[in-house]
Design a protein around this nucleic acid. Structure first.
Lengths: 107, 107
DNA sequence: TTTTATTATCGTAATATTGCGATATATAAA
DNA sequence: TTTATATATCGCAATATTACGATAATAAAA
């Protein structure tokens, strides 16, 4: 078939997989790294830094944004992206829980 | 085009993305959860537990195994999978570093 | 060695992702 | 309002992923 059977898994499991999916492309990791450094940067700045086109960069930004990891606001003609720290902390917790639980159960 | 431009990113960034990719499918999270619980289980047991076919489950197992997160050995006619705790701990560290670094830079 | 049971791989169809050019949309300046 | 600039979306081509039936490969038992 080829269609992912999400319904077989718990909400919590799907949530963790969704977050992992956001981080599963190197461009999106690079984008997050760069936004962390520049503290409020535009799509064009990011695109130039990671050397992908503006449309591609914008697409990746939307994917990250949908997860809640990014905030954005227009300043002048540019939309400036910053990291949503609260969400980041929450998601860090999700991963930490997964790793710690698995670590403890495992042996 | 449609082909991922890994070469644009650092080894470290690609490594993190690769690990995230392993965790980016709910079936693979469920498999890891289950293996943590049962401590040495067969492909068929896992397949039955997560309600995917044996071939699909085996495919997911290979994906996880390639990341180093699983060990396996034949016992009787079955191959029993267990979690590679050392690798798990290492990968936990990778994620933790990413989240902590990003958290501190971000604001 | 043959049989049985389990796992891994092949082949394939359905779907999803990635990347970018073209273009629409949005914001501020003239 | 018109113009200029930046971002987001559309459309498409190239890949990649997901799932499973069929089947090959593997290990132990008969």
């Amino acid at each position: 078939m080829g269609v992912s059977k999400r319904f077989l898994h718990s909400v919590h499991v799907n949530q963790l997989a969704d977050l992992a999916k956001v981080l599963s492309h190197p461009a999106r990791i690079s984008i997050l790294n760069y936004i962390g450094d520049c503290e409020g940067c535009s799509c064009m700045q990011i695109a130039s830094n990671i050397r992908l086109s503006q449309p591609t960069t914008s697409q990746h930004l939307q994917v990250i944004k949908k997860s809640g990891l990014l905030k954005s606001k227009f300043v002048g003609k540019s939309q400036l992206y910053t990291i949503n720290k609260d969400k980041l902390t929450a998601l860090k917790g999700l991963f930490q829980d997964f790793f710690e639980t698995t670590e403890q159960k495992c042996c």
